[in-house]
């Protein structure tokens, strides 16, 4: 064996060792999963556990604080503003999601029909979803503006009615923020359900028509069961996003008037960052967790069941 071949000799066993190591399914699996685990740990787990640690302390922006146990949570449930924000969040989420479900389904059925410029219209309805929240909210803010509401101009000058206090009246302010959320979120539900509608084989409709099913029956017994898995997924995602929504309320009312539209996300921001009470702000955020957790666990179990099936 010549001297020049000597250095190459140990490389082969090393390569073989690496190959056999990678041949091990368990090792390869861990290696492939590692990047995702590291990313999730850095971007989800670390902030999550930091939030829990903060919520159990009296931490402020300038002071690491001390452990206070569940004091922050106990204080929250005696706080009128927090309880109001909690109630607002539930109303905001329930009303928005129901409206988005009905309108999204209707939109999908409409877009599934054949009509001129169908592709253009399908692209156009996505605009509210694509436009950044801040821009969309600013446009609505002008429409609801207490001084120059274009909606009130239409009500007054075209319909001869009185203008409405869109953002002034507490109940109507809530209706206004829900309206903007629905306007923004409906296209997502619509387009998602439309995709599901288009995957339904036309034969099923033909067969049901031959069996004498009318339009309503075809929707009830063919369309709805087949779009249901997609619809439920979209619904759960929409509920999670609405429950934790910040931009629409912050942009339109900053939680006013008189906290009538404060939701947990805006209150957590105000408490944690504006007032510097990081511990209390984190506690407010974490009270969103139970409902979100139920939804996420339910959704994951559903996905797993459908994967097994």
């Amino acid at each position: 064996m010549s001297a020049t071949t000597l250095p190459a000799a140990p490389a082969r066993p090393r390569a073989r060792r690496l190959a056999s190591w990678l041949d091990n399914e368990r090792t390869l699996g861990l290696l492939l999963v590692a990047p995702v685990v590291i990313l999730l740990a850095a971007l989800v787990a670390y902030p999550f556990f930091t939030a829990i640690r903060s919520a159990l302390s009296d931490q402020t922006l300038a002071d690491a604080g001390e452990f206070v146990g569940l004091d922050n949570f106990a204080n929250l449930f005696q706080d009128d503003i927090y309880l109001r924000a909690l109630r607002n969040t539930l109303v905001y989420t329930a009303a928005s999601v129901v409206a988005k479900l009905v309108l999204g389904l209707a939109l999908a059925l409409l877009l599934n029909e054949t009509f001129p410029f169908r592709r253009l219209v399908r692209a156009a309805v996505l605009l509210p979803w694509i436009v950044p929240t801040v821009l969309g909210t600013m446009a609505w803010l002008w429409m609801f503006n207490p001084n120059f509401s274009v909606l009130n101009w239409v009500l007054t000058n075209i319909f001869g009615l009185r203008g409405l206090p869109w953002l002034t009246d507490p109940a109507l302010a809530m209706v206004s923020v829900i309206t903007v959320n629905v306007w923004r979120g409906t296209p997502f539900l619509g387009i998602t359900v439309l995709a599901a509608l288009q995957s339904i084989p036309p034969d099923l409709y033909d067969a049901s028509a031959i069996d004498g099913a009318n339009k309503l029956q075809r929707f009830r017994y063919v369309t709805l069961p087949l779009v249901m898995p997609v619809l439920l997924t979209a619904l759960v995602l929409s509920t999670i996003w609405t429950f934790s929504d910040f931009g629409v309320v912050y942009g339109l009312t900053q939680g006013g008037p008189m906290n009538a539209t404060h939701v947990l996300a805006t209150l957590a921001f105000r408490t944690g960052l504006t007032a510097g009470q990081i511990g209390e702000g984190a506690a407010i955020s974490l009270t969103m967790l139970p409902l979100l957790l139920v939804l996420i666990v339910w959704q994951l179990r559903r996905i797993r069941r459908s994967a097994v099936a």
Binding site: P146, P165, A173, M258
Partner: peptide, 8 residues
């Protein structure tokens, strides 16, 4: 003007 309660 009652709108003042919504003034930003």
């Amino acid at each position: 003007d009652p709108g003042v309660t919504a003034w930003l």
